[in-house]
Design a protein around this nucleic acid. Structure first.
Lengths: 154, 154
DNA sequence: GGTCAGTAGATGCAATTGCATGTAAACTGG
DNA sequence: CCAGTTTACATGCAATTGCATCTACTGACC
């Protein structure tokens, strides 16, 4: 081990978390009203976005659920609604007859792209003035490291 | 201005935000099931916590609303429920007869403290292994700076 | 191969949420 | 001072959410 890094105490971790959390709230709150989220709520967009990131294009419902804060029954019904809107398609998983796989339809993919572009543009306007490029880079590294280092849920 | 810091591009800001957001989701998701949130949902606890931070002990409803992601009618009714549970008290504001001020009751303050202690303890267990004390400090500074530097909502 | 525990989603139902709108008080310009 | 606008919160109501539970399938053990 190179330099001695001392372990964080409770105050340090609590304050850092609180600051991160409040920042997330502040940004989300400003984003809520923006026009791109008129057609789809932010939660729904987040579902489309997560699916769009899957290499194969298909995800298992339970896997998707882990990336979201909503409960399993809520996701189940949200997917139902998004299928009804023509934005998603479902199929039963090959190797596990209990499982459901979902993917974006062409329409869903297109809507995700449209909203995504607007979203990124507005996000950039909102947060870019606050930090330098170097600081954003540090922030990304620190949050990635934090996320990857979380103690496994028991 | 000392060194030349270059301005962040769109990719840089979007990736940093996404990483922060995903980290927040990962932590919140693990927190949801913990026993301290059996008596009160996380949203409700967050309300008590925010009020507990007010120097005077009283807050205006609209001011409190700005620190939360829920809508104004939702907060209005959540406060109603928390008053019914005996955790909050309400009064009309002195200088503005339209306004409502709320504060914790003794019972509410005590419950907030109990949940808060458990929460901080579990949070620490969960995230402390991920970063050093110095890194948590950097994370706090960066998120504070980000929050304070957000472009004003139009 | 049959029983039993565990996992993936679906569903009934009550509670919570948000949207649109309502009411009342405060501000504003003449 | 008074009409018109804005602000703060409440309320009707439909949509969404979560909890508890159910069904169907899987995997393990014997």
């Amino acid at each position: 081990m190179p330099d001695q890094e001392h372990l964080p105490d409770v105050r340090t971790t609590a304050q850092a978390w609180e600051s991160l959390f409040r920042t997330q709230v502040a940004v989300m709150r400003r984003m809520q009203g923006l026009p791109e989220f008129k057609k789809l709520s932010m939660r729904e967009y987040d579902v489309l976005f997560n699916i769009s990131r899957c290499p194969t294009g298909w995800t298992r419902l339970n896997e998707l659920n882990e990336a979201l804060l909503i409960s399993q029954p809520s996701l189940s019904r949200m997917v139902e609604r998004l299928v009804a809107k023509g934005l998603l398609q479902r199929r039963t998983a090959e190797q596990d007859q209990r499982g459901i796989e979902i993917s974006l339809t062409e329409e869903g993919r297109e809507l995700q792209r449209i909203i995504g572009r607007e979203h990124v543009r507005h996000l950039h306007e909102m947060i870019a003035p606050a930090l330098s490029a170097e600081e954003f880079g540090q922030l990304q590294l620190l949050t990635e490291k934090l996320r990857n280092g979380l103690k496994r849920a028991d």
